[in-house]
Design a binder for these strands. Structure first.
Lengths: 344, 344
DNA sequence: GTCGTTGATGTAACCGTTTACACGTAACAA
DNA sequence: TTGTTACGTGTAAACGGTTACATCAACGAC
């Protein structure tokens, strides 16, 4: 009760108290095998009594590793951000690592990134707006890294959402649901996700032998509504409207309703992302769900592997060797005739 | 181009290359004053050329501080989580600190917390489900801490959302909007936020002289819908439904619509939190907005202050000395008769 | 009885920084 | 000239761990 006042016990304090050398304390606490059980027990008891916690800095100095990984994220919002971190944290905890978080706000991050070098063993980087050259310049060389949804060709393992496959699956679903003429509301040009989804949709439509018109959008509800208006007016002929994200799909849904178009009877509607709102609108929106937490966990797992064996994983970098997480189709009411009461 | 291959340059490498001592390098790079400008420039040039980044561990060992703060959060979802972290990160970056994130999943966290001791200079802890005794036992003694929405009486500065005042403000608003019989859908028992909101609502209703029935909920949409069903069926008489969070309010809103109850004409609906979804539902939800990012930033600011001056801030701990952030009333369409087109 | 051998423990060097102190130099006052 | 000061720089000792190597005791084989 009264002996534990010392703010920070060191390994030497423990050694003195337990009447052994510092080496023995270190060995006892780190699960070394050549330690007499009796001694190990005594050391553990003393360590607990003194509230000894190894100094992370000293350890990292000695071991040449920090047991921490850095996460660099863009200025994200909401569910995506929290799910990603939750997934990462889960895996990080499992691996006995710590998580150092950095948000890439505005223009900073340039030197912020470099400063991470001394603090972490590896990096999970998500920076859809940065080019490969920029990134490469900023990143500490020789630090294992895993990239999320980045341009390919970086020196590190890459992990991405297979937008193309997801979009293709959605087109297939629409076709199976009876669509013959699809309007795809694309996301902003230059956005990697948007481009991939468009390409996947176009390819799948071609394969399926159905017509597909691409309408330019920008991921906002307004742009979805505008596209829907064109469909409602007949300026674009379509019996299915597939938006590159849920926001546009919902905008379209509202607009179609406003124009007196029946969904899904006259026009089927589908989105992408499965944002929380998707199941709340009426009719509930069919969309593609990405398991964000799994994406985060997988990224950490990959990074941890690359940290212990830097060579591994380098192979899979080149061309399109990035590992992909395939989104899952979530069918709700905007693409199915039956007017179900329950919404999943 | 070819000289920067060395994975990790140390201060000695820089010293050798710049033909000075390590002490001078350290002084030059850390902005010490007694350094000849010419020498400082040379050192900086060499450091940049070699890509030298100080080893954080070594530095923390030498300085007895880590320049990192730990954040311990419950398993939160969505916007709240991301906003809080965004606010924290903003302040943390401004202070030149790093952010170590830990999510308190399930039962773990007990030893996880202790392990943080060696890695951070202070802690921001949010653990609404833990009692004061539990927390005190887990927390490394002598580590500055700031608590968010925790039970009072802990050895550290506290910062909280004034849930009671917020709930009271909402009840007042409902009364002003014509409500005479309020149903309050409470959050899960044991949750501090939920309890405070309920207490605030009950007290305000009493003051205003209106009837208030408490219906048990659990922060999920389903529980909000269930409560609304009771109101719609007449099992509970109420002309206003005030849910302890937006999720329940939205669940209620949808359920009321389903039962053919007009909102806000027959029953006014209000939530708490102002999640993004709140302004998207129709009619748009009246709610209380908490500036979460500001809360996070303020917590970090307070912590940073306590780290440089451990004595400071200890005064404000006792009774109810916790600093409080008061939520702001956001009036939308679920409580006002006028069927406005625009939604703020 | 001596000599390996083996296994448990201690000693001390090292990881990369910071910084108190020592030292050398130059400027200036006496 | 000789002290005194001030300033710039170098030397070396921490900081708290890990671990190669040395040491030492116990034991069995000869």
């Amino acid at each position: 009760m009264s002996t534990r006042r010392m703010p920070n016990a060191t390994i030497r304090d423990v050694a003195r108290e337990a009447q052994v050398s510092v080496a023995s304390v270190s060995r006892a606490l780190n699960g070394h095998e050549r330690v007499r059980p009796e001694l190990r027990a005594r050391v553990q008891e003393v360590a607990a009594r003194l509230g000894y916690v190894p100094h992370a800095g000293a350890r990292s100095l000695s071991l040449a590793r920090t047991s921490a990984i850095g996460v660099v994220l863009p200025d994200l919002h909401g569910e995506f951000f929290s799910e990603l971190l939750r997934g990462m944290d889960r895996e990080v905890a499992a691996q006995g690592l710590a998580l150092l978080l950095t948000v890439l706000q505005d223009g900073r991050g340039l030197n912020t990134l470099a400063a991470l070098r001394g603090q972490v063993d590896g990096l999970v980087v998500m920076a859809p707006q940065l080019g490969a050259a920029e990134l490469r310049a900023q990143l500490p060389a020789g630090l294992p890294a895993v990239f999320l949804n980045c341009v390919p060709g970086l020196a590190g393992a890459a992990l991405r959402v297979d937008n193309a496959a997801g979009a293709a699956a959605m087109v297939d679903h629409l076709v199976a649901a009876g669509a013959r003429t699809i309007a795809h509301v694309a996301g902003p040009v230059g956005n990697v996700d948007a481009e991939e989804r468009r390409a996947g949709a176009v390819a799948a439509a071609e394969r399926a032998g159905v017509a597909l018109t691409v309408v330019q959008g920008d991921f906002t509800e307004a742009s979805g509504a505008a596209a829907a208006a064109q469909v409602a007016r007949g300026a674009i002929r379509a019996d299915a409207l597939f938006a590159a994200n849920d926001a546009m799909a919902i905008g379209a849904l509202v607009a179609l309703k406003g124009h007196g178009v029946a969904v899904p009877r006259q026009v089927r509607v589908a989105g992408f992302d499965d944002i929380p709102l998707a199941r709340l609108v009426t009719p509930a929106l069919t969309t593609m769900r990405v398991d964000i937490a799994a994406l985060g966990a997988r990224a950490v797992q990959l990074l941890a592997r690359r940290i212990v064996a830097p060579a591994e994983g380098l192979v899979e970098v080149d061309p399109a060797g990035a590992e992909a997480i395939v989104p899952r189709l979530v069918v709700r009411d905007t693409t199915t005739e039956t007017d179900r009461e329950t919404q999943s």
